[in-house]
């Protein structure tokens, strides 16, 4: 009934009735993220009849297809062939990457789980803020909610588990932490990640010409500011929250 659990990577597994997942690792690592991004690009370039859409997550590329047009065995065979065509872990990062610096309030009423995260990491709150704000993290994937980045990797001390009980609601712009990654929430949502920072950055702006602010491969840094400064920035613009953006030279 159940397929064998993958023990070796890369591997190809089914997702429901109409999807295949090509996974390059079972945990987050930089080379497997690059592999997923590049493999997904390669599938898109081939433009097969019957493929409906594709995406890349932290360490996997997903292909959704119409199983009545492209059979499971046919597309599995094709993906297997591409998978062994080259070493995907050595694929380059996407071109045109940018660095975003985002003003962030750490801890306090706006981000009440900072102290808890610090304790889980075995650090003082001030040391935690210092380390998190110095970390330059990459957009590993965009998902869960519109325009919302998974960012990492953070240092191994931040490899802390998700919470068992969901926090009922964190607001848009919340910076949350678990498993050596940040997520910057694009809308109010319940979460099992710890709420450590608050920004006024809007990842998804449906009313704007460009609805999605970030691209996979972009880098971000979350610089500490006071609550008063954040409120001022929130008033001042339409969604960037005082963030700056510069091209990363290739």
């Amino acid at each position: 009934m159940a397929p064998k659990q993958a023990s070796t990577f890369p591997c190809i597994r089914t997702v429901g009735l109409d999807g295949l997942l090509v996974s390059f690792a079972g945990s987050m690592a930089e080379p497997s993220n690059r592999a997923a991004l590049a493999f997904r690009d390669a599938v898109n370039t081939l433009d097969w009849d019957g493929v409906i859409e594709t995406s890349a997550s932290l360490a996997s590329a997903y292909v959704r297809f119409d199983p009545l047009v492209l059979t499971h065995s046919e597309i599995h065979g094709r993906l297997h062939q591409i998978l062994h065509r080259q070493n995907w872990y050595e694929a380059p990062l996407p071109a045109g990457r940018r660095l975003w610096k985002v003003p962030t309030v750490y801890g306090g009423e706006l981000a009440p789980q900072l102290d808890e995260a610090a304790a889980a990491a075995g650090l003082s709150p001030s040391e935690t803020i210092d380390r998190l704000s110095r970390s330059r993290v990459r957009v590993l994937t965009i998902g869960f909610a519109p325009g919302q980045p998974y960012l990492g990797p953070l240092g191994p001390e931040f490899n802390i588990p998700r919470l068992k009980e969901l926090t009922p609601m964190v607001p848009e712009g919340a910076l949350v932490l678990a498993i050596s990654q940040f997520v910057l929430f694009s809308g109010p949502t319940p979460t099992g990640w710890r709420h450590v920072g608050q920004t006024a950055f809007r990842c998804f702006r449906p009313e704007a010409k460009e609805s999605f602010a970030l691209r996979p491969g972009d880098e971000m840094q979350f610089l500490p500011v006071s609550r008063a400064e954040l409120e001022r920035l929130r008033e001042a613009d339409e969604g960037t929250g005082g963030a700056t953006c510069e091209e990363i030279p290739t």
Binding site: G19, L21, G26, P161
Partner: peptide, 12 residues
């Protein structure tokens, strides 16, 4: 609690 985030589709 430590599973890597992966794709979700309606029906899951």
């Amino acid at each position: 609690l430590n599973i890597l985030s992966e794709v979700i589709t309606p029906g899951d």
